[in-house]
């Protein structure tokens, strides 16, 4: 049983026009096994929250804290956070020319576990996870994210999540850019991983459609850098019907 706590988080970013505060006091607690959806309009700061949890150097925390089982996450480097059990499926995964998926996955797995995986079971695990995500077996020979379609990038992110088995996974708009079939495949992947690893899930999305496949226990409406309202799955239904207008114009 693990706990991720975000307390009164304030985050700024340096822009050409000077320092800008994006997150303005975020409070959130996620336990293992729970699924939280964060929904909000574009530009409300959802990705900023995701990146800040992962430790992206562009974002400066000016107030508040993030704790993982009581440990100060903000003191950790990006890779230490990942090894502590935090995972971020990126909205825009970057290309790494010349580095094959297979090399990348093995290197990441070795880093997370602190030892190289046993070769035979590793190959089987990778193949199984790829089959489930309907990924062609030649995929591992390609260079990381190079020439991947939008859907392939997202599958690749979920593949990593399945294989690296984090304690908490943050999925930043994993649903965007996916067609109906791909959305289903990816959602099933998330559900399967969750079932076998029982991690805590923070699902960031602009739209409600992925919530048909991945059922959230909690829904948080994110507006202008903080949580404006929270509730159960029924809140998502209301957002579907009403949109964000009443929060934004308020």
């Amino acid at each position: 049983m693990s706990k991720l706590e975000i307390k009164n988080l304030h985050v700024t970013v340096d822009t050409d026009q000077g320092t800008k505060e994006i997150l303005k006091g975020v409070d959130l607690v996620i336990n293992s096994g729970e699924s939280h959806a964060i929904m909000g309009p574009n530009g409300s700061g959802k990705s900023t929250l995701a990146y800040t949890i992962a430790g992206h150097p562009k974002y400066t925390v000016t107030q508040g804290e993030i704790l993982l089982d009581g440990e100060d996450v903000l003191e950790m480097s990006v890779d230490e956070r990942a090894r502590a059990g935090l995972f971020l499926a990126m909205q825009y995964p970057v290309e790494i020319p010349g580095v094959s998926v297979s090399n990348f996955l093995r290197t990441a797995k070795t880093a997370i576990d602190g030892e190289a995986p046993a070769l035979r079971t590793w190959i089987k695990d990778v193949k199984g996870a790829m089959d489930n995500l309907k990924m062609d077996s030649t995929f591992t020979e390609r260079n990381v994210n190079e020439g991947f379609s939008g859907g392939e990038k997202k599958r690749h992110e979920i593949l990593q999540m399945e294989l690296l088995k984090p304690k908490f996974a943050v999925l930043d708009e994993t649903d965007s850019g996916l067609d109906v079939d791909a959305l289903k495949v990816v959602s099933e992947g998330v559900n399967r991983a969750k079932e076998s690893n029982d991690f805590g899930l923070l699902l960031i999305t602009h739209y409600t459609r992925i919530l048909k496949y991945i059922k959230p226990d909690f829904v948080h409406v994110f507006v202008a850098g903080k949580i404006a309202e929270q509730g159960g799955p029924e809140l998502a239904d209301r957002l579907e019907a009403e949109g964000y207008d009443r929060y934004v114009s308020a």
Binding site: V78, D79, L88, M90, G98, V99, T107
Partner: peptide
């Protein structure tokens, strides 16, 4: 730096990440 961040976010240390990127480049 975005490549570095991506790799580090998968648990890979900075030195190892640089190694991967440079080797990939020269591969």
């Amino acid at each position: 730096d975005e490549q570095l961040f991506y790799l580090q976010a998968r648990g890979i240390t900075e030195l190892e990440a640089r190694r991967l990127v440079v080797r990939g480049f020269l591969n």
